[in-house]
């Protein structure tokens, strides 16, 4: 490598650095703005600054509609993440076997990722209508979310399952482990990072979902739908407070998940206390 190309690459590094700074600015500046404005003692969202207040937070915590929407979102996200991770695991395990039309089945599962959410939502609401299936949180919305999240669950789990050496499971069976024990003590601990990633991913996808939910939920609320309705009807800094709380909640869920992932990294046979020291 000569001096010219070295200095060229230094320039390139500078340019990329600048670009990265810009990206981070546009990523985080809106969030920071929102957080600041949630403490603004004024009636509307935005400037001027009317002084510091925690009033909007107190109001939000007393707002039964907001609280109800939040718990709807949390419960829905928990159910969606568990169900889609289970389904994703099932498909990933099935994909280890060779069967006719396997490629078709797997590709058909991934394909909905390429279809715009609003298109799928309209399709679903039409289909549900025909089937006489009413809009609502635990029927239509749950199904709509699952269609959206199961491919992501599969994509998180499949690589771990796929690269797992089947000889290792054979060795466990050889040492006396029944199929269920093999799954519990060998496969599960090693694909756990993928499962946790899938749970977290599907949780946040569902928790944040808006477009499909709006079409499918009918008269009920999730936090994003509620948020949208107050922005339309009553845009006060309370909306910023609710949004800030929602971001905090999402972050703590993800943080907790990552912590969990790190904790189990140093664990051995999940089945028993380790063999005593010698």
């Amino acid at each position: 490598m000569n001096a010219t190309s070295a200095s060229l690459s230094r320039n390139a590094v500078g340019a990329f650095g600048l670009f990265a700074v810009a990206v981070y600015f546009f990523l985080y500046a809106p969030v920071v703005t929102m957080v600041i404005l949630s403490f603004n003692d004024s009636i509307g969202i935005g400037l001027p600054w009317g002084g510091f207040t925690t009033r909007w937070y107190r109001e939000s915590f007393a707002n039964t509609l907001a609280i109800g929407a939040f718990f709807n979102s949390v419960r829905l996200a928990v159910v969606v993440s568990i169900v889609s991770t289970t389904l994703g695991l099932g498909v990933a395990l099935a994909s280890r076997r060779i069967f006719k039309g396997k490629a078709l089945v797997l590709n058909a599962l991934i394909l909905p990722l390429l279809i715009p959410g609003i298109v799928l939502a309209v399709g679903q609401i039409t289909l549900f209508n025909v089937m006489g299936f009413l809009p609502g949180l635990w029927g239509a919305t749950l199904l709509g979310h699952l269609v959206y999240t199961v491919p992501f669950a599969f994509l998180n789990i499949f690589p771990r399952v796929h690269r797992f050496d089947p000889n290792i499971e054979a060795a466990a069976a050889d040492l006396g482990a029944t199929p269920w024990v093999v799954f519990r003590t060998i496969l599960l601990p090693q694909i756990m990072p993928g499962l946790i990633a899938s749970l977290l991913f599907c949780f946040t996808l569902s928790f944040d979902e808006f477009t499909r939910t709006l079409f499918l939920i009918g008269s009920e609320n999730t936090l994003p739908v509620y948020f949208w309705s107050i922005i339309l009807t009553d845009p006060s800094p309370a909306a910023s407070a609710i949004a800030t709380l929602s971001v905090l909640f999402s972050l703590s869920v993800i943080g907790g998940g990552l912590l969990l992932l790190n904790l189990r990294r140093r664990k051995g046979d999940s089945d028993a206390t380790p063999v005593g020291a010698h």
Partner: peptide, 18 residues
């Protein structure tokens, strides 16, 4: 085909535990 997520001792103990 050793179990990569277990220590050497846990690998050897696997059959006895079963």
């Amino acid at each position: 085909a050793l179990f990569p997520h277990m220590s050497v001792a846990d690998n050897v103990a696997y059959g006895l535990r079963r």
